[in-house]
């Protein structure tokens, strides 16, 4: 029996670009180039390693909820080695919040069929890090999240969670939702062969109708949170910069003393 893995990947504005808000206070996606969230590459990598450890007796579906361009994120994941893609795209999704996104992802995951859902630790734009917990709650399966190490043996997923106060070894039966951190191991680069093969891999497109979701359950109107204001943070006023000519440490101490830190 083959292991069905669904990896949730998000298409995000490049963090090194100049990110802005659009007029309706949603993330402006036109201004800055988009890409597969770097933190989701770790999720794809761990899914691939789980598949390899299962002697390839697994199928990896990469799933994204996002605009047309989000297809790029799926292609990148497919070129790394995932088997097929699912793209949920619908004009009514514009402005969906985390709860709404989790609803859409949960329905799409159920429709696809799964034993294991793998997520990244957080999206690089929203940085909430709550989607995996939301998915576990909605799907009614165990959450095994923020793992720096993960493996699947038989019907059990095991992992290590490096928390603030302790390191925990976790274990759950499948089906389950896991998320992996950027400590889980470098993601592979797509090979030329992988990039060519990805072009031929199937990507299924779904809309809200296909998932039996009403338009008013998602989108800006359906969102349960509202951004009222977004202001660019004023640039920090230029500070004093000195070149160390042997007195740098002293000068710095003088400054810190002036600010009452010493």
């Amino acid at each position: 029996m083959s292991l069905r893995i669904v990896v949730c990947v998000k298409y995000v504005p490049d963090a090194t670009g100049d990110r802005h808000f659009a007029e309706d206070l949603t993330v402006d996606r036109d201004d800055v180039d988009g890409l597969l969230s770097e933190l989701d590459e770790y999720a794809v990598e761990q899914a691939l390693q789980i598949k390899e450890a299962a002697d390839d007796d697994a199928e990896i579906t990469v799933l994204t909820v996002g605009p047309e361009d989000a297809n790029d994120a799926l292609r990148k994941a497919l070129s790394m080695g995932a088997d097929k893609g699912v793209h949920v795209e619908d004009d009514d999704l514009h402005g969906t919040d985390a709860l709404g996104t989790s609803l859409v992802l949960a329905k799409a995951i159920e429709k696809t069929g799964y034993d294991l859902v793998v997520c990244g630790m957080a999206s690089t734009d929203g940085t909430m890090g709550v989607l995996p917990a939301l998915l576990a709650e909605r799907l009614g399966v165990p959450q095994v999240t923020q793992l720096s190490e993960v493996s699947v043996e038989g019907g059990t997923v095991k992992g290590r969670r490096d928390g603030d106060t302790a390191t925990e070894q976790l274990e759950a039966s499948l089906p389950a939702v896991v998320s992996v951190t950027d400590q889980s191991g470098e993601a592979r680069y797509p090979s030329f062969k992988g990039i060519m093969a990805a072009k031929k891999k199937p990507v299924e497109s779904l809309d809200l109708d296909d998932l039996d979701i009403e338009a008013d359950e998602v989108g800006l109107e359906g969102a349960w949170t509202k951004v009222d204001e977004a202001a660019e943070r004023p640039a920090r006023t230029a500070g004093t910069i000195v070149k160390d000519e042997g007195e740098g440490g002293k000068q710095l101490a003088e400054f810190l003393a002036g600010q009452k830190f010493i």
């Binding site: 920090r236 500070g239 910069i241 000195v242 440490g249 710095l252 101490a253 810190l256 010493i262």
Partner: peptide
């Protein structure tokens, strides 16, 4: 990082940091 600072020292940290540490200790 210098775009953010209130005070910046352009220099080798192995010179500046120990000197600062000594100075802090002396003042305290």
């Amino acid at each position: 990082i210098f775009d953010l600072v209130d005070y910046g020292v352009v220099g080798d940290l192995f010179e500046v940091v120990p000197a600062l540490t000594d100075e802090v200790k002396a003042r305290k």
